[in-house]
Design a protein around this nucleic acid. Structure first.
Lengths: 138, 138
DNA sequence: ATAGCTGCAAATGCTTTGCAAGGCC
DNA sequence: GGCCTTGCAAAGCATTTGCAGCTAT
């Protein structure tokens, strides 16, 4: 898979969700969606972009993360008040959170089984169930 | 139970965990620990204190919430990046989070059963498992 | 007396916003 | 061309911190 085809794929992917494939969005998407699934914060993505020689303002990184989340390309994970994490893996799964390092890691969905879940309170519906396994250095 | 005995209880409780029963801490603890278990943010507690005619600075509210959490009188719940919630119920249980209203509600521990949990990654230990059931208006 | 607390205001860290300039269709 | 995007800098929020003055023991 060469650089051109990656670019074309990303471009299509953005168009499919109704987002214009601007240079910034394509560059950021290329960083996010090439290789394995992973987690990021606005700051790590911004830093990774700089390292890759991609120039994008931090405001645009925030905008992009939220837009991608809205259209289902990313999923937001809340583990830390004060910082937002995003996950390129949008399928159902849960997380380890390494509190010492501030790092997230996926737990395969087979390893977390909820045997019982409450009904949603009257007048509401469950939008998502998050399981966070917080770990610290042994 | 009259006002005096509540005050005495709170004072003892603070001493037992190694915190000086200052006026501010006793006043805040009285607001928190009288009545049913409930959830709060620094802001709601500060507002409640004002309503009750208790004068405490917001900085002290933050300090107190964190000190109480450290000694196990409160538990911090992370559901929203941007705001910290605290729970007077420190026993093991999980939460509904009403995303529209920004409100937390306890789920009785019987209603959430984790049948399977992953082992902690090598070199780490599980410090806590949080289950957040996010709900929205039906 | 003295170690610990509190309050204020300033500082911080992350995130959002307003608006002019630029780019995609 | 027209509408959507971007970037910058400023504003916004929740939270933390420095430090002088106060208080519990």
């Amino acid at each position: 898979m060469n650089a051109h085809s990656v670019h074309a794929q990303i471009t299509d992917r953005l168009r499919n969700v109704g987002l214009r494939p601007t240079r910034q969005r394509v560059d950021l998407a290329s960083l996010m969606f090439v290789g394995e699934d992973h987690h990021m914060t606005a700051e790590t993505l911004h830093r990774d972009a700089s390292s890759a020689g991609v120039s994008v303002s931090l405001a645009t990184v925030y905008n992009t993360l939220h837009q991608f989340t809205q259209v289902g390309l990313l999923r937001e994970i809340v583990v830390d008040s004060g910082r937002s994490y995003f996950d390129t893996n949008t399928s159902e799964h849960h997380h380890f959170y390494f509190e010492d390092k501030g790092v997230l890691e996926d737990i395969s969905s087979a390893d977390v089984v909820l045997a019982e879940l409450p009904d949603a309170p009257a007048g509401s519906k469950i939008s998502r169930v998050d399981v966070i396994v917080r770990v610290t250095e042994a």
